[in-house]
Design a protein around this nucleic acid. Structure first.
Lengths: 250, 250
DNA sequence: CGAGAAATACTCGAAGTGAGAAGGACACGG
DNA sequence: CCGTGTCCTTCTCACTTCGAGTATTTCTCG
């Protein structure tokens, strides 16, 4: 930076620009009882009081965007920011001028995943907070949150294909069958158990064996399963493609 | 919306929120002389006057984000907004608190592609505008634009794998060899001509034949090539994977 | 006219995929 | 304690896809 910059900044008035607020909204997914759930809050204040919405809120003046997303998640829902296996990534930004009646609001959406998250606790801005099953959502959602949620689901579904994201939905140690259940739940269709097994083990760095097995067989019988933990791969190669890929190509 | 909302909004003061400005920045790629080029402008005003930067600027009060991106592209560089084959997609949003010395600025980055774009014309906010080759960029770039540009390149490289984006870099009608040149330029490595040919034709909806051929053979010899135009596929299946994929997996 | 270059097609072995089935290990209900 | 059914895990087989190399033909250039 130059001295010219200093002179310039001294006379600079930030209020000269159009009033805009920046918020973060979080699409948080988890799996409960074999169904995909998203975290929603019931708005405690206008606008759209009592409507179900994604957790979110204004970004603090000196706050980074991902920090704000983690804070909102914690504040409005009691879901611990420092949850060990929480995954947070930027999804997209929504800025249609009339998406919020208060003023021009540009919202940066984040996508979060974690295994076995606890029941949320409603925070200051929320009358209630709950994990809602994706196949039985309240309608309508506030603002354009239905669009954001749909984009988040799309992203999650395709990220399973080429990233080890699925390991974020299960515990530290898991069986191949648990991992398969994640794919089946998010993709919404059954997979061939044998082929899935072969494929997961053939992708370098996806999972690594712990040497141990489960204590018992499955709830309805079957042998004990070997336990694995997440490997160090960032990208799955070859990828696990959704069976229905070809149908949705065009 | 309810009457409660109206009461609430009547007493609402937008100035109560932390001052933030929202900008758009555009990473525009094209191919010239077999090299990948990005559009840069030389800043005409502080801060960082005279530094090279991505074209961009403040979002108008009633302006949609993609509209703002197209406008900035046109304003600062003379690249026509309505260019027939211009592709524009949202890349990501950058909001680190100190990324701009003026104030808190959140910038939504867009990615643009087009074939054979004309030489840009410097607009009001730019002292100059130019297509700069990616392998010989001026350094440093203003603000965090080097990061944004790197993210844009990553996105472009991987989008070639599973989307028909490459057809946006060539003319309305093109040969398989021209398409291959796009992949080789963006990926930065030579491809096996025979395998590429087979693969492109085997992906349903990627290209469709026009029945015609080029008027002449290649500049250095060879037969006339068949001409194709873009098909209707939105997703390539099977995908064309980068040869170096496996090395960069972890 | 000859040499080199490029578009396209073909071949071969290696690797990956979907579908099915087999072999055990285990839970659970008589 | 035994039979039945579950289901983890491994195999097999036919089919597709892939990378690498080669062949053929047609063109430009000198």
């Amino acid at each position: 930076m130059t001295n010219d910059d200093d002179d310039f900044l001294a006379g600079y008035d930030p209020r000269a620009f159009p009033p805009v607020a920046v918020t973060v909204d979080v699409v948080a997914f988890t799996i409960r009882d074999g169904r995909l759930h998203v975290l929603l809050v019931r708005r405690a204040a206008p606008p759209q009081q009592d409507a179900w919405a994604l957790p979110g809120g204004f970004v603090g003046e000196w706050e980074d965007l991902p920090t704000a997303a983690a804070r909102e998640l914690a504040e409005e829902t009691g879901v611990a920011t420092a949850h060990r296996r929480l995954h947070l990534e930027q999804l997209a930004t929504y800025g249609t001028p009339d998406r919020d009646p208060r003023m021009r609001i540009v919202s940066v959406a984040y996508l979060a995943f974690a295994p076995h998250l606890p029941d949320p606790v409603a925070g200051s801005d929320a009358r209630a907070a709950a994990w809602m099953p994706m196949d039985d959502l309240p309608t309508p959602l506030a603002f354009d949150h239905a669009t954001i949620l749909a984009d988040g689901l799309d992203r999650a579904r395709s990220k399973l294909e080429y990233s080890p994201l699925a390991t974020r939905f299960v515990g530290e140690e898991f069986t191949i069958a648990e991992l398969r259940a994640v794919y089946e739940t998010v993709w919404g269709e059954p997979l061939h158990a044998g082929n899935f097994h072969r494929k997961v083990l053939s992708v370098p760095g996806f999972v690594e064996s712990t040497g141990a097995t489960t204590e018992r067989g499955g709830a309805r019988g079957g042998p004990r399963a070997k336990l694995y933990r997440a490997g160090d791969a960032q990208l799955l190669h070859p990828a696990l493609l959704m069976p229905s890929r070809e149908d949705t190509v065009r």
